[in-house]
């Protein structure tokens, strides 16, 4: 049995909410907008909890690096069943290389033998932190995991690929990044939400995980709303559809 699984999580804008640009175009206005646990991190946490329930691991530690308000995400993690929670409080979310640095420090501090986290956060859509963390720790990685089994100190992982899948055997300690099919997050009961409110959260300063203030390496210079609207011209029937395709040379000629 392994001792600790670390499940880093991010808080993101609720995916039901349309991201709005600040009037000066300097960023996204998320003041007062609904926030959720990044869906891929939620899947990752679920996978970690199942390993614990299977008796593969003794405990699951959820961790957040972010502003004070992200404590809410940790409460959700505790309500789902995480045994402990750590919050590294920073004013602004650091860039991925520094998040990876802080998570590496946390993983060592907690004595984690396995890190399971989402393959990407659905706000910045970067999808690079898990790999950077694995590199920092010098651990193997299994990205885009769809199935995970841990046995005798080895993670057997079925990974999504550009075409088909890959089956990897990665020795622990390692970093696994969750894709959609890895697990279906459990429903959290109100009773567990209430209980989670009283569970302790360990608070760490940025310095305790080696984070110093630094200039941004990839500053957001400007954001714009994307225009997705198209003409939306309605066609009367399939004949009209075929005529449209013919006009554009997209219908096989000499047939029909």
């Amino acid at each position: 049995m392994i001792d600790t699984i670390l499940a880093p999580i991010r808080q993101t804008l609720d995916h039901h909410v349309q991201a709005r640009v600040l009037p000066d175009g300097s960023g996204v206005d998320d003041q007062g907008a609904a926030k959720i646990v990044n869906p891929f991190d939620e899947i990752a946490l679920e996978a970690a909890l199942r390993l614990k329930e299977q008796g593969v691991a003794a405990r699951v530690v959820a961790a957040v690096i972010g502003p004070a308000e992200t404590e809410k995400a940790l409460r959700t993690a505790l309500a789902m069943g995480a045994d402990a929670a750590a919050l590294v409080e920073v004013e602004e979310l650091p860039e991925p290389p520094r998040v990876a640095q802080a998570l590496a420090a946390l993983a060592r501090r907690e004595g984690a033998e396995l890190v399971i986290m989402g393959k990407q956060a659905i706000d910045d859509d970067l999808g690079v932190t898990a790999q950077m963390l694995a590199a920092r720790l010098g651990w193997p990685q299994a990205m885009f995991a769809a199935e995970l089994r841990v046995e005798d100190g080895v993670a057997h992982v079925l990974c999504e690929a550009d075409a088909g899948t890959r089956t990897l055997k990665a020795p622990l300690p390692c970093v696994v990044a969750a894709d959609l099919r890895l697990a279906e997050p459990r429903f959290v009961s109100l009773a567990n939400v209430m209980k989670a409110k009283r569970k302790p959260i360990e608070r760490l300063s940025a310095a305790e995980v080696g984070l110093e203030v630094a200039e941004a390496h990839t500053p957001l210079l400007k954001v714009e709303a994307t225009r997705r609207r198209r003409a939306g011209e309605m066609l009367a029937d399939v004949d009209a559809l075929i005529a449209t395709l013919r006009q554009r040379g997209l219908w096989p000629e000499g047939q029909g």
Partner: peptide
């Protein structure tokens, strides 16, 4: 080093563009 994914435009050696938030937002990144 930093890594930027889904880059759709290279404006100059130090400036690129990429979508965020499921493509609702197009960001210019230094």
């Amino acid at each position: 080093a930093p890594a930027l994914t889904d880059v759709v435009d290279i404006i100059d050696a130090d400036t690129v563009r990429r979508p965020m938030y499921a493509g609702d937002i197009l960001a210019t990144v230094g």
